[in-house]
Write a protein that binds this DNA or RNA. Structure first.
Length: 117
DNA sequence: ATTGTGACTTCGG
DNA sequence: GCCGAAGCCACAA
């Protein structure tokens, strides 16, 4: 049998992002942590920027620390993120989202069970 | 090889 | 709130 090629950091980030439930959000840093890559918030940001179009990833559920939309306020992406979040019931005030209410807090044991790594 | 650039985060002022 | 510095590291030049 061939050796299972280890997933790249970006791929692991994508895998976890795919599991964020509707109506919930995470921060870049949290996403990296959940992917087993502590301290790699920047990589999570990069992963969201380079998502393959065909892989319908809920990138809009990923926010900056403290619940802020990280995209430039005048960009189409910023408006799309606001729109998509609101579409699934997340309250958005400008670029702010209340993390106390919408942050995803997965059961770690269950998460581990689901992940392909 | 070195340098600059990020959808980042935390800390100190 | 806003800023700079530091820590992070893949990637392009």
């Amino acid at each position: 049998m061939s050796k299972p090629k280890p997933l790249t950091g970006e791929q692991r980030i994508w895998q976890v992002c795919l599991m964020i439930p509707e109506g919930k959000v995470v921060s870049y840093g949290q996403l990296a942590d959940l992917a087993g890559l502590p301290g790699r918030a920047r990589l999570a940001g990069r992963a969201m920027r380079t998502v393959p179009e065909e892989m319908a990833l809920p990138w809009y559920r990923v926010l900056g620390a403290g619940g802020r939309i990280s995209l430039p306020k005048d960009s189409p992406g910023y408006r799309e993120q606001q729109y998509r979040l609101r579409q699934e019931g997340v309250e958005v005030n400008g670029s702010r989202i209340n993390m106390n209410r919408y942050q995803w807090q997965p059961d770690l044991a269950e998460l581990l069970w689901q992940l392909p790594f």
